[in-house]
């Protein structure tokens, strides 16, 4: 993957496109991170990093959580826990779960169609990589 990107004639354009793709998925990812239960902001950031490779600029997630809460998709509460200060935990509301269902179905349908479309391209990439690896192994 990295080799192919390095060979691309316009690597910056490719990276910009990838960044746009990730941005578009952020709202859905923020909702999905709360599927199993409540989390506070820093936990959401770490969950997204570990589960989806969505590495956020730290100032990104809070305005989005604020907006989702204002739209009634999330609820929040301050909890005094083991920390020396309270933390604001977010949970999905029923409309939030419904919206996430709709987003997930739309995403799965869209991604499935694109994956079929891209299968020949990916196979070709794998073949190139395999050939290059064999050439590197041979003296």
């Amino acid at each position: 993957m990295m080799r192919l990107r390095a060979k691309s004639s316009e690597p910056e354009a490719s990276e910009r496109w990838e960044a746009q793709l990730r941005k578009g998925a952020l709202e859905m990812a923020a909702l999905a991170s709360l599927w199993h239960g409540r989390l506070y902001g820093l936990e959401i950031i770490r969950f997204l990093e570990s589960q989806s490779q969505l590495i956020l600029a730290e100032g990104t997630i809070y305005p989005i959580l604020h907006r989702l809460r204002a739209e009634g998709l999330l609820t929040s509460e301050w909890v005094e826990a083991e920390a020396r200060h309270p933390r604001k935990y977010y949970s999905l509301t029923d409309p939030g779960r419904q919206r996430l269902h709709e987003m997930a179905e739309a995403w799965a349908s869209f991604a499935g169609g694109l994956t079929r479309l891209l299968d020949p391209v990916l196979n070709h990439s794998r073949n190139i990589r395999s050939t290059e690896d064999k050439q590197e192994v041979q003296p």
């Binding site: 990838e18 941005k23 590495i55 600029a57 100032g59 990104t60 305005p63 989005i64």
Partner: peptide, 18 residues
């Protein structure tokens, strides 16, 4: 324009965090 509103960060998408 929520997509535009999401145009806030993520530009460091390839940088490790933490």
């Amino acid at each position: 324009s929520h997509m535009l509103q999401a145009k806030l960060g993520l530009l460091r998408s390839t940088e490790p965090v933490g």
